[in-house]
Design a protein around this nucleic acid. Sequence first.
DNA 1: CGAAGTAGGTCAACATGGCTGACGCAAATT
DNA 2: AATTTGCGTCAGCCATGTTGACCTACTTCG
Lengths: 166, 166
Amino acid sequence: MADANSHTQASPLFLREAEIRRGVELLYFGYANMVRGADGVLATRGLGRAHHRAMYFIARRPGLPVSDLLRLLAITKQSLSRVLGDLQTMQLVAVAVGARDRRQRLLTLTTEGAALEAALFEELRRGMAAAYTAAGQGSVTGFWAVLAGLIPQADRPLVEALQAGL
Amino acid sequence: MADANSHTQASPLFLREAEIRRGVELLYFGYANMVRGADGVLATRGLGRAHHRAMYFIARRPGLPVSDLLRLLAITKQSLSRVLGDLQTMQLVAVAVGARDRRQRLLTLTTEGAALEAALFEELRRGMAAAYTAAGQGSVTGFWAVLAGLIPQADRPLVEALQAGL
DNA sequence: CGAAGTAGGTCAACATGGCTGACGCAAATT
DNA sequence: AATTTGCGTCAGCCATGTTGACCTACTTCG
């Protein structure tokens, strides 16, 4: 890590191709390894990564309307409906009619769904906590800052809303 | 692990669930947005993300044997062979018989393949460079450190070999 | 040398999770 | 009253992953 700072003066080199590629590759492998951890748990239930993503966001924002989940996942409603159908059939997700807007379907995890999500999250937590610890707290801020910079302006409110009021 | 936390007063909170979830989410959205950038270029050629990943690593390590590419992508050879077949048919990738080991097929990009990879890389570069700039150089080191920590020990040499001798 | 292991290719069948397009309905908005 | 919005659904297609079986060519090792 002292090595990574070895170009102390040279700003012109800051955006060199090698540094971009390093970021691309670490992001690729880091993401792949993070999600791989949960696959084992998912397999025991016959679920896939798409189910995990949906459950994750529902856990994060109980009462989430379908339209919000669609925006977060950035997939079509046809794709989501298959996943959501599975989760409802398996009694992992429950829907409620919106109070303010009765057209909305508000999504929540059932008790069983919450338990499964917790088990899945534990897999993510294990890897992420180890990475935070190995890198040190100072690194975590930088990690967040660069990743936030990858998200287009237009999408940031979506992500921030997810993380608001923790 | 107590040691890594010991330099702040809020140590017990360092690995709080909210901070883990923030990392998970930023990693998810950051990765998704990075790769989305190249989709437009890929679509003009009728290619998918799997083709991009293969071309990326071949560009990164010209003369890469198939077995190494398989390890990097972590997919089966049957899956890869479809992708590689497409790329060879489209004259984007060329194969050569290994000199030391004649069983090996060493992969390289053709001139046309290299041009396409450059265009795809430019899409990645744009987003990553903007994120590096917005976050600042200090953040980039932390970004790398945390991501590296997500990669299991066993896989690190693979990634480091990719980045060696830049 | 001969046996065993390795690098790679191939056929076939199947699963997952995206997509488009076309409809329909109930509820909210104007 | 007309329009828009939120959601669901049928039907079919595509990209990309999987398993398992089987094959050749080449290298390595006893």
